[in-house]
Design a protein around this nucleic acid. Structure first.
Lengths: 221, 221
DNA sequence: CGGTCGGTTGAGCTAGATCAAATCCAGTGG
DNA sequence: CCACTGGATTTGATCTAGCTCAACCGACCG
């Protein structure tokens, strides 16, 4: 899978896209605050400075899909045209840079470097979204959870063997992976019993990377 | 859901992006031929002139995910960086315009209009991919099938009430919706029995649009 | 110290998968 | 034109991964 791109694509802002600094505003949100709503007018796009954001689609009857978890350096909201197709919510306290869409779009239209950087960003998110379709369409609960833990570990730079933060709730994880809270709990508990991971409410450690990888891509039958 | 964008975004080619014509080659593929392979070097991107293409991800053990079905006017392969993350295959006989990536990328880097058109294309596919995540993560088999039929009907311009082509096999549909062939068959048969659709192997007709819409977005419980 | 809100665990239940036959064509050859 | 053949589709019977319902736990908070 590909996760590398999102965390590293804030670079152009400091080089070819210096113009972005000029239009950025800094905003903060507390835990569970709505940064923008599903269906709301897309007036800004955002880059995360600190904290974790979830993007959420809600069905009329309350079923929920968490499209992605976003971390410092990640951008969101730039692909909306007119209105947001999903809500963005703060998982914990977050600080963001916020860019007004008119100025942002104008910069992309004017600066070829900005446009191509933005295209790369969209392409990376598209590739990531397609990986997730395989997960949601064809993987078992154990594979989904193991893959999710691996992704979290890969996206959080830290010394190997140390704890990986799980800032989001079990419900968020369930709605991200197309499972229920109970299945997430049970599967995590089983992995702990098997010695693959250490587990606490808000973090985990990889005890046996090979076992976790095996679970993430188990060949069926 | 959004499907409109893909079928209409060949327009700039005839206006601001006249340069694309100069680098296009025309190629044909027979039924089930591989247009490009998963993991192959991304030397071209493509636009469909006629026929239907499926983009496919294959897991090591043979589980398959059909990311999308593409129709005349749709583009694919432009978001690959280095190598393709999925294979593209001809559902039936297809004719394509093929664009060498170096020339294509150069045009996008040079022409702001080309870049912004391409960004719109990527953004549309991203929004579509995210709609599909809700389907794959949270919808029932009946909702998936009803939604799929509605999408096919919306994407194939034709006089209302006439038959909608289903050029792809039941297996393709199953792998697109994260179901099995048997579930696809049974669900379609049930909808026919309920009078919502007329059904043949390679097409269907909408007999009762309201009933189909209701099935596509049934409120659970 | 009691309340509340996540999280965990247990006991069935069911939508959809799996396994197993038919059946239906489309294409082929006579 | 018709019989034949192989893959695609349909239908039936059964199984099970993951869901639902329910109870309990435990950390944090005022």
């Amino acid at each position: 899978m590909h996760f590398s791109s999102q965390a590293t694509q804030d670079r152009p802002e400091r080089t070819a896209l210096g113009g972005l600094d000029a239009i950025a505003g800094t905003v903060s949100f507390p835990r569970n605050a709505e940064i923008h709503s599903q269906g709301g007018t897309a007036r800004h796009c955002y880059r995360i400075l600190s904290g974790c954001v979830r993007t959420v689609k809600l069905m009329e009857d309350g079923r929920r899909q968490v499209n992605e978890f976003l971390f410092p350096g990640d951008w969101f909201g730039f692909e909306a045209e007119g209105e947001f197709e999903f809500a963005a919510e703060a998982v914990g306290p977050v600080v963001l840079h916020r860019y007004p869409r008119p100025a942002f779009d104008a910069l992309a239209a004017r600066e070829p470097a900005a446009a191509s950087w933005l295209l790369g960003l969209a392409a990376a998110q598209l590739r990531h979204a397609r990986d997730r379709m395989v997960t949601l369409g064809r993987r078992t609960a154990t594979e989904r959870i193991a893959g999710f833990l691996s992704e979290m570990a890969a996206r959080q730079p830290r010394e190997s063997g140390s704890a990986v933060a799980l800032p989001m709730s079990r419900g968020d994880i369930a709605d991200h992976l197309g499972l229920t809270i109970e299945t997430v709990c049970r599967t995590l508990a089983q992995m702990r019993r098997d010695g693959a991971i250490g587990l606490s409410r808000t973090s985990f450690t990889i005890r046996n990377r090979a076992a976790l990888q095996a679970l993430a891509s188990a060949t069926r039958h």
